[in-house]
């Protein structure tokens, strides 16, 4: 009922198809539009453009900075995602399973990095890294990104841990497993989607972070959003659309590969 396709009527089913189809088009529209923009000849994003061209692609590949920036972004985002998840995991266990008072208040304390305007975090951490002499380093990028990514990872994991029925884990312990073993073999597999979603959020927060990154960047080290932001501010060139288009195709490719691997393993 309501959660298996067989159990809902065709009326509800077709309404659902229609509604979600509309929302999916809403989500997809700007993405396809970026692809179209990247081939438009107008530098000023006039659409439809006077004619079509691939000159922005030439511009993109003429400039090694874009590729370097993308690689830096990837590196920073991966490290951020791993560290944020590693810190968020024990935190979530303590907050959900713990029996001490004030857990809700600790929770809101840990979500503070989401509430404080990013500009403030950016200026505050930038001053700190300046006095430590770390600005423009990978360390500064990763630490400052972990700060803002942590709440995302934490909320996601807490959410799935809350729904996990602890008695299953207890059953494993009663059957002779150690608590740690039970957590690794029983609990983790069940809350895996939550952990994965948390890691993904952390990755994306870092991947898309603009305001802090602009502060942390140096001429030698910048991430993709920094490169895009400075390009957007000065020249609205469709090279940005090119960069986005390539990113879109990379993510489609990753999704396809993931799907194929999943089918094989079944």
């Amino acid at each position: 009922m309501l959660l298996t396709p067989q159990s809902i009527g065709w009326k509800l089913k077709s309404t659902l198809y229609f509604i979600t189809g509309a929302i999916a088009s809403f989500l997809a529209l700007p993405i396809f539009f970026i692809v179209a923009l990247s081939f438009g000849s107008s530098q000023w994003l006039i659409f439809p453009p006077p004619h079509w061209t691939t000159k922005w692609y030439e511009r993109f590949f003429d400039n090694p900075q874009w590729i370097e920036a993308a690689l830096t972004s990837l590196q920073v985002a991966l490290m951020t995602s791993i560290i944020a998840t590693a810190i968020a995991l024990p935190t979530s266990f303590a907050l959900v399973r713990g029996k001490f008072a004030g857990r809700d208040y600790l929770y809101s304390l840990f979500t503070l990095p989401m509430i404080v305007p990013v500009v403030i975090i950016a200026v505050a951490t930038y001053s700190m890294f300046l006095s430590l002499g770390l600005t423009g380093t990978l360390v500064a990028f990763v630490i400052s990104h972990v700060i803002v990514a942590l709440p995302f990872a934490m909320i996601s994991i807490i959410n799935s841990l809350k729904l996990f029925d602890k008695s299953i884990e207890n059953a494993a312990v009663i059957c002779g497993a150690s608590r740690l073993e039970a957590i690794f073999k029983v609990t983790f597999p069940v809350i895996k989607p939550g952990i994965f979603a948390g890691a993904l959020f952390a990755f994306l927060v870092s991947w898309d972070e603009v305001v802090i990154s602009v502060m942390m960047a140096s001429p030698e080290l910048q991430t993709l959003p920094v490169k895009m932001w400075s390009t957007l501010r000065q020249d609205l060139t469709p090279v940005i659309a090119v960069a986005s288009t390539l990113l879109i195709f990379i993510s489609i490719f990753i999704m396809l590969v993931a799907n194929i691997l999943r089918k094989r393993s079944l």
Binding site: V123, Y126, S127, G133, T135, G136, S218
Partner: peptide, 9 residues
Amino acid sequence: AMVESGNVQ
């Protein structure tokens, strides 16, 4: 921020 921290780049 640079001037205040004394590390002016």
